[in-house]
């Protein structure tokens, strides 16, 4: 197996172009597990740890451009206000050691349906930046996940960044595991409200072959939500929202949980995230000095 060590993005893209079957490696928290268990034997590894721009984030427009190689620890410490749900999701990842190494880019590269980042990227309408020697393109997260561990990324492309829109309302992320830390998600859910466009974003993980949105639930809630007054929602509305979220789940029974439980759990998480969001939204209306968009 070749171990390629580019030190610039240009070299990295050239390496990926020359070795389309090569697996990029950053923190190694996913790739090394696959290698150690002998699940994959790629022809080459491309070590991206020396490519500086991958490990940096900065403003772009009124949002954030997050390098694909920024570890979860930094997202938690540095992006709590600019990307609250992603920071929340990052906090639920594995252990401190893994969070020091693991990255959103790795989560997207592996594209496990259980990955913590995906529901947030769907709910917040984030955009994935892909680059190759042919150029750079941007794909909305909502069009990125195509099938089980299959994404819109072409073989010669590297995931270079994620574009996170500025929060325009409450955001939340929740994850079910059968212990209180260090656990792969049995089910994930993320909710993001956009007060500017008066739209709702959702993302579900571990309940289908790919991360999915609950579009009907989004539209339903966008119509029912009191965008002007933030009024407490009828219990029936909250319940209906939970049902609509559950209805898009296509879960399986496996060693981590049953399909019925997963379907049930995303519904509960959706109802709770909605009630937290209403509380946040009302708070932001009552306290105009506070940043309404940063729940």
């Amino acid at each position: 197996m070749d171990f390629l060590r580019p030190s610039t993005l240009e070299e990295a893209l050239a390496a990926k172009s020359a070795h389309p079957d090569a697996v990029p490696i950053m923190g190694g928290t996913d790739v090394m597990v696959e290698l150690n268990f002998d699940k994959h034997r790629p022809g080459a590894l491309i070590d991206l740890t020396r490519v500086p721009e991958l490990a940096a984030w900065g403003p772009e427009g009124d949002g954030v451009r997050l390098g694909a190689g920024v570890p979860y620890t930094r997202i938690i410490a540095e992006l709590g206000e600019r990307a609250p749900a992603l920071a929340q999701a990052s906090r639920s990842v594995a252990s401190p050691q893994i969070r020091n190494r693991g990255t959103v880019g790795g989560n997207l590269g592996g594209a496990s349906p259980a990955g913590e980042s995906h529901p947030v990227l769907l709910a917040t309408d984030a955009v994935i930046e892909l680059a190759s020697v042919r150029g750079t393109r941007r794909v909305p997260a909502r069009e990125f996940y195509l099938g089980l561990r299959r994404t819109a990324r072409q073989d010669d492309e590297l995931i270079t960044a994620v574009l996170l829109p500025r929060p325009a309302g409450p955001q939340h992320f929740s994850k079910i595991g059968t212990r209180n830390a260090m656990v792969i998600a049995v089910a994930n859910f993320s909710l993001a409200l956009d007060a500017g466009t008066r739209t709702v974003g959702t993302g579900l993980g571990s309940v289908a072959p790919t991360p999915v949105r609950a579009e009907e639930a989004e539209e339903f809630l966008a119509g029912e939500f009191d965008w002007d007054g933030g009024a407490v929602l009828d219990e029936a509305v909250v319940r209906r929202f939970g049902e609509l979220v559950s209805s898009v789940a296509r879960p399986i029974d496996d060693q981590r949980g049953s399909a019925d439980y997963r379907r049930h759990a995303v519904g509960v998480m959706a109802r709770r995230a909605l009630s937290w969001s209403v509380t946040d939204y009302r708070k932001s209306l009552q306290d105009p000095r506070g940043d309404a968009r940063c729940a």
Binding site: R91, S92, S174, K175, N180, A181, V183, R272, S275, W276
Partner: peptide, 16 residues
Amino acid sequence: LRTLPGGVANTTHGEG
């Protein structure tokens, strides 16, 4: 969150 079922995975703020 560390005192709650589910821990930092943020599944409840006391509900249920």
